[in-house]
Every structure is written in structure tokens, then in C-alpha cells.
């Protein structure tokens, strides 16, 4: 049974279409990265999943239950880290957690939960004095209450420093190892590729790609990007490099830097340059990253997508 099934989901606000005929599933036990630029419709999707907003058309089931009709039961088995939310200024971290524990009829200890997210030192401080990162840690701790079957994390790295983001990913792995399905939204590929089994890329309210991390990586052509620092470069040289058999694209970054997308031999590029009497001062190569995949899917350019 899939943890989340979204079928032909459409949500419109008057004339504005936030989601258009969106369909995807999140399998039980996986970590699913829900990726897309800001405004792509990630939060709208999550809001429908949690019944914060109602769909214009389409169906959503969560843990096998209809998202609208059985919302309370779904939420009793789900831990949520909502996005762009303020905590209660006058309540301490302990009170926030006691409220969540009370609400879910769970028997967690606030100390133990805050220990996990690294906020135990501030347990009796009012949340009004917390930094953005501390609030985020507190809300992550609230999401963990009651060992949920499903974790929905909406932009969980917001406000976290790199170390905090790493700790957060560690918790995602722990929860997944315990058996929880994790649905994790982000606009930064780097944060999902390290933990996600599968990634779905959303753009303008439509899913443009769903695949494993490896699958997405394989979908990129021009596997390597070669960066060459030279003494000079002209259009004629650029054309010559572009016409080489293994080269898919070549651009100049500035007057002395050349960026070449190359699928096979790099030496052919360097030889071509030297044959033309251009001095190669330095060069570096870089494997195409998932960030490039993400870029290609979300900016609409066809530079690298096959």
C-alpha cells in the first residue's frame, strides 16, 4: 500500500492554477524527495495532503485513507514539520512538546525528543527568543512525537546551518530505519539527494520527473563539464571546439575561461586548443551533479536533458 497517492490533483484559486492534474505516489517505507523551485506548488500539495486546503479536482489518499474524510486519523499517524510557521512565543519548548504529546496521546519524553534535535539546553526557554534554526529544531521534535508512520517535512532545512541540515538528514535516516515513510520537500537538490530513495521534481504545478537519484543522474547527457583557463579565446576557436564529435556544448565564461560539455575524450578538446596556438594554463573537470539535472528540469532549458 502506498503511503501517499495523489491522483489527477488540480487546485485553482480563481483564475490561477496552482496545481494541474498532478499524480504521483510515495511508496511505504521510502524517503521521497519532493523537489521544486519556490512557487512550484509543493506547499499547496502538502496542504491538500493534510486537508488544510481542499482540492478543486482529483483525489488524495494518505496511508490508504481519504485525505479529507479521514484527516484526523491520518494526522494521528503522521508527523508534520510545516513550512513558514511561527512557534508560540510565550510557550517553552517543553510546553510545545507536552501539547503535541498530549494531542497525540503519546508517551514520549520532551527531554528525549529535544536531545535528538539538539535543543535540550533550551527546553525551558520561551520560543519567542529562539532563532529561526532553533524554532525549526523544535518543530522537528514535535513532528517526531508518537513514532509516526509517515513524516511530512516541508522545507525542513529552512533556517538551519549546514551542520543543522546534516543532523536533520541524520534524523530522517533514523526515522526511515525505524520504518517510517518520509516525504521531504525542498528547493535545494543537494539536501534531498543525500537521503532520498526517489525524487520527484515539480515545476509550475506539474511533476516533470520522478526517478531514483541514480536514474536522474543517468538521464543527464554531457556527463562531464570541462573548464579550461586559457590566455585568450575567440569565436572561431569556440566554433571549432563545438564541432568536435564528443562535445555537446561550449561556452565562454569570461575572456579567459571556456566551459565545455564533453561526453568522451577531454584530450581532444585540449589538443584542439593547443593546435590553434592557444595556451592552456589550467583545466578542471566536474561530473554533472543532480543540481544540474534539477536546473535543467526547472528552468526549462534543454542544454543537458536528453
Amino acid at each position: 500500500m502506498p503511503a501517499i497517492t495523489v491522483d489527477n490533483l488540480t487546485k485553482s484559486y480563481g483564475q490561477t492554477l496552482a496545481l494541474e492534474d498532478l499524480s504521483f505516489r510515495v511508496e511505504e517505507g521510502e524517503v521521497f524527495g519532493f523537489l521544486g523551485p519556490n512557487g512550484a506548488g509543493k506547499s499547496t500539495t502538502i496542504n491538500v495532503v493534510l486537508d488544510f486546503i481542499r482540492p478543486t479536482a482529483g483525489e488524495v489518499t494518505v496511508l490508504g485513507l481519504d485525505a479529507q474524510a479521514h484527516s484526523r486519523e491520518i494526522r494521528s499517524r503522521t508527523g508534520v514539520l510545516p513550512e513558514g510557521v511561527e512557534t508560540y512565543d510565550r510557550l517553552t519548548a517543553r510546553q510545545h512538546l507536552e501539547f503535541a504529546i498530549d494531542s497525540k496521546d503519546a508517551d514520549d519524553e520532551p527531554e528525549a525528543l529535544l536531545e535528538r534535535v539538539g535543543l535540550v539546553d533550551a527546553i525551558d526557554k520561551k520560543a519567542g527568543g529562539y532563532s529561526k534554526g532553533m524554532s525549526q529544531r523544535l518543530m522537528l521534535a514535535m513532528a517526531l512525537v508518537g513514532e509516526p508512520d509517515l513524516l511530512i517535512l516541508d522545507e525542513p532545512s529552512t533556517g538551519l546551518d549546514p551542520n543543522g541540515a546534516r543532523e536533520m538528514r541524520e534524523i530522517v535516516r533514523e526515522e526511515n530505519a525505524r520504518g517510517a515513510t518520509v516525504f521531504f520537500s525542498s528547493h535545494i537538490m543537494e539536501q534531498v539527494e543525500a537521503v532520498c530513495d526517489r525524487v520527484g521534481i515539480l515545476r509550475d504545478g506539474e511533476m516533470v520527473a520522478v526517478d531514483t537519484v541514480e536514474g536522474l543522474r543517468d538521464s543527464v547527457s554531457g556527463g562531464t563539464s570541462l573548464r579550461v583557463t586559457v590566455d585568450r579565446v575567440d569565436d572561431e576557436t569556440l566554433q571549432a571546439v563545438r564541432s568536435l564529435p564528443d562535445v555537446s556544448d561550449a561556452t565562454t565564461e569570461d575572456e579567459t575561461t571556456l566551459v565545455v560539455q564533453v561526453d568522451g575524450s577531454k584530450t581532444a578538446v585540449l589538443s584542439e586548443l593547443e593546435d590553434r596556438g592557444i595556451e592552456v594554463r589550467d583545466f578542471t573537470t566536474r561530473e554533472a551533479s543532480l543540481e544540474d539535472v534539477f536546473q535543467s528540469y526547472t528552468t526549462g532549458s534543454e542544454v543537458e536533458a536528453q
Partner: peptide
């Protein structure tokens, strides 16, 4: 306005 209603409604409250 602050979005904290999502904290309330992420928990099993109607």
C-alpha cells in the same frame, strides 16, 4: 496569519 494554525492542525485536532 503567522501560520501557527498549521501546528494545531498538523496534530490530530479537527
Amino acid at each position: 496569519e503567522t501560520g501557527s494554525i498549521k501546528i494545531l492542525l498538523s496534530l490530530p485536532h479537527s
